[in-house]
Design a protein around this nucleic acid. Structure first.
Length: 500
RNA sequence: GACCCCGUAGCUCAGCGGUAGAGCAUUUGACUUUUAAUCAAAGGGCCGAUGGUUCGAGACCAUCCGGGGUCACCA
């Protein structure tokens, strides 16, 4: 498909042709870069300019001021921006420079100096075109007003275009790179924490013949050779547990999960989850591990445990508050619902002004009350513990509290961040619970779990006592980078396809 | 899925019934230390799409397509 070129695109193609006619390769192979822009800016000293007598920088031209026989441009590399000064006579190809544009990638060799206006710059002795840009980029200009505030002119602000063309967003709004650099640091810190403790990073199938380990609608696909339906995983859980059965004592996986559900500020159809399983541990051990882990990550990635998110400051310093689910409801509603059956809970929900479906089970109603009345209060890190059995088909029964499980969810800033159990390893109990899920499914709950015979067989071989945890990485990054939309922590968030 | 807002030049936006506008970007000219460089001139648009109302629609109405936001769904 060809598309009509606008005047700026046509002009750049003409310039490209001219450069080629002049013997310039507009797309050369390498450039020997010696310095990052920021390294020069921070290390250059006026009393010792000889330390920067020959530098080679490379990057994209982001601003261009031509003044006849001399020009200034700003060159942006991964570290930042530095000004280059180009003068006829100093470089042999100054005339070709007129065919360069904002957006072109260039290499500049030269010496560092400070201009009359005080800006540290590179005085070019060689100029090399490294990539001719054929499409114009938006130009963001930033200036400080009299009060010292930064004012943006012509920012690239259209969110749709920024998400669809993230490459352009990163060029024009380089400050957003910080979020993604932090994302990488967060994941690296987490990985290192686990590796240091001897737990093994593993990979398990994304294409699964049965989906399980969570309650969600899957994406469905088809394998041609096997002529069979496969599902994109909604969770790693059942495969990681098989590895614990196999004898590994600590395994974790950081990977994409896929859920075929609504999209909003905290949900993308593909998202990154970390799941870890450690043998011979229970959920109480896991609480201590998680709070230490989060402290470690915050210290490593942010150098502080006090995190600003929206209007709140959250402290990730251990220990985190622990609050049983039913007590949390009592604390925020004044209602003691312990021991109530579904009928009694329906009445309580009505008193609290919460609408629930008439056929809702006790677990669903409790969850509804929690979501409506408690969750948004949980700003500081809080472990909600002791979830009802029917809400937790893969968690071990509580060792002392009837009808409850050994489970916690971690809430921060009113959102769920982690979910963990003492993992159910009794194969007979597990079969009963999954069969109950099957009955929910038959009753119309299309998100109830499927029964995975092979997983049950693995449990029959025997899984040691194990604690497991899942942490939503995207939300963790949002928390630690003070972003309120998941789209701002994903390079390429899911968008609707545009018609041709 | 419901409701509200948005879609006009490469970018950011104004125009809200009467000949399509501004700033930046772009082009041409001047300028060998500029800083949103400056000065002078110029080009650039199926006003998201399709129907309708009207003598006349970028504007009003309807539908559709994209996006943002609230809510619902996501235990």
């Amino acid at each position: 498909m060809t598309r009509e070129l606008n005047d700026q695109e046509l002009r750049r193609r003409e310039e490209l042709d001219h450069l080629i006619q002049h013997g310039v390769n507009p797309y050369p192979y390498t450039f020997d870069k010696t310095h990052d822009a920021t390294a020069i800016l921070t290390n250059f000293k006026d009393e010792a300019p000889e330390e920067f007598k020959t530098v080679a920088i490379a990057g994209r031209i982001m601003a261009l001021r031509r003044m006849g026989k001399a020009s200034f441009c700003h060159i942006q590399d991964a570290s930042g921006r530095i000004q280059a000064y180009l003068r006829t006579g100093d470089i042999p190809n100054y005339d070709d420079f007129k065919l360069y544009d904002i957006g072109d990638i260039v290499g500049v060799k030269g010496y560092v100096f400070r201009t009359k206006m005080g800006e540290i710059s590179v005085h070019a002795t060689e100029l090399t075109l490294l990539c001719k840009s054929l499409a114009p980029i938006p130009i963001a200009k930033e200036v400080e007003d009299d009060a010292g505030n930064k004012v943006m002119y012509d920012a690239f602000a259209d969110k749709e275009l920024r998400y669809r063309q993230r490459y352009k967003d990163l060029v024009v709004n380089p400050q957003i790179r910080d979020t993604f650099v932090k994302r990488s640091k967060i994941i690296t810190a987490m990985r290192r924490y686990f590796d240091d403790r001897g737990w093994l990073e593993v990979e398990t199938p994304i294409l699964q013949p049965l989906y399980g380990g969570a309650l969600a609608r899957p994406f469905t696909t088809h394998h041609n050779s096997l002529d069979t339906t496969l599902y994109l995983r909604i969770a790693d859980e059942l495969y990681l547990k098989r590895l614990i059965v196999g004898g590994f004592e600590g395994v974790y996986e950081i990977s994409k999960n896929f859920r075929n559900e609504g999209m909003d500020k905290t949900h993308n159809p593909e998202f990154t989850m970390m799941e870890i399983y450690v043998a011979y541990k229970d959920v109480y051990w896991m609480m201590e591990m998680v709070e230490n882990l989060l402290e470690h990550i915050a210290q490593t990635a942010l150098a502080t445990t006090d995190v600003t998110i929206g209007k709140h400051t959250v402290s990730l310093k251990p220990p985190f508050r622990r609050l049983p689910l039913l007590e949390s409801i009592q604390e925020y509603t004044g209602k003691d619902i312990s021991g109530m059956d579904a009928a009694a809970l329906h009445i309580v929900a009505k008193e609290l002004g919460i609408e629930v479906e008439p056929k809702a089970t006790a677990g669903k109603i409790i969850d509804e009350i929690f979501s409506e009345k408690v969750e948004h209060h949980l700003i500081q890190p809080t472990y909600i513990t002791d979830y009802p059995l029917e809400m937790s088909p893969l968690a071990k029964k509580h060792r002392s509290k009837e009808g409850l499980t050994e489970r916690f969810e971690l809430f921060i800033n009113g959102q769920e961040f982690a979910n963990a159990y003492s993992e159910l390893n009794d194969p007979i109990d597990q079969r009963n619970r999954l069969e109950e899920q099957s009955r929910f499914r038959a009753g119309g709950d299309d998100e109830a779990m499927t029964l995975d015979e092979d997983f049950l067989h693995a449990l029959e071989i025997g899984m040691p006592p194990t604690s497991g945890l899942g942490i939503g990485i995207d939300r963790l990054v949002m928390l630690l980078t003070n972003q309120d939309s998941i789209r701002d922590v994903l390079f390429f968030p899911q968008m609707k396809r545009l018609e041709a």
